[in-house]
Amino acid sequence: MTGHRKHLQKAFYILAVAVFLVWTLGPIAWSFSISITPQKDTMISPAPFLPENPTTGNYSQLIFGSSKEGGNVAEGRMFKIGLINSLKACLLVILVGIPVSVFAAYALARLRFRGKEVVRYLLLATMAFPLFSTIVPLYKIFSDFKLIDNYWSLILVYISSFLPLTVWLLSNHFESIPSELDEAAAIDSCNSLQTLIYIHLPISYPVIFAGALIMFISTWNQYLIPLIIAPSLSTKPIAVIISEFVTKTSINYGLMNAGGLLAIIPPVIIALVFRRFLIYGLTSGATKG
């Protein structure tokens, strides 16, 4: 390859990386710029590319809920309650959802039982169901039985919407484990539960971890389910709180952006640090048969 052509290729690559970064991070950077702009400066038009008097006021208001600013104390309080509610839901979803997924995936991949193919197809079919197809009757049933605003009903509905993906992901993985391992375990008179615990689990942590990360991020980002069945501050998650900031006319632009950006910190850190696990989880669920 000639030197000239190599340079051209390199220039192309750099240009593509630049477009990629501007497209992906540009909108977030602009939102950050607004979040550090004092309220009075958000009336300037056209907006300056960088705030002239940057302030961390919006962040401290949300994090410390300082009463100095007067009117917006409520936002700081709601924000923190939302964060705690979301974290709680994430932990509970993982604690309950992962064991349920592991057991089901193990049976689907390694055990023979009648109706297995039906279960597989039914799981895959749920991908076509819009959330509304389940949430309308759930709302009515939950309100009849006073289960609205209840952590357990909320997280079980979350889990029901994640199970198809995590079970699919885990059972694809279990299928890839050589069956000689099971046979060896059977000779040592391990029953199926012991085989799962002593043989399969120790070599499955990466994929289980990937499943847990996907559950964390998906729970953190939930909007429609909690909008309908988690209406009060006792269960309402951060995403719904943030969406309420948008519709409130009294709130300033900077605070809205600061709240949104604080809410993306946990999933963004996970995406950057554990990208390998996430991408493995996302692609092996979709592309393997």
Partner: peptide, 21 residues
Amino acid sequence: TGVAIIPWAMPGVVNGIIWRW
């Protein structure tokens, strides 16, 4: 690759806010 999956990992609500601005 890490940067590439950020928009996927974010709450959709925040995605809407960011583009609103």
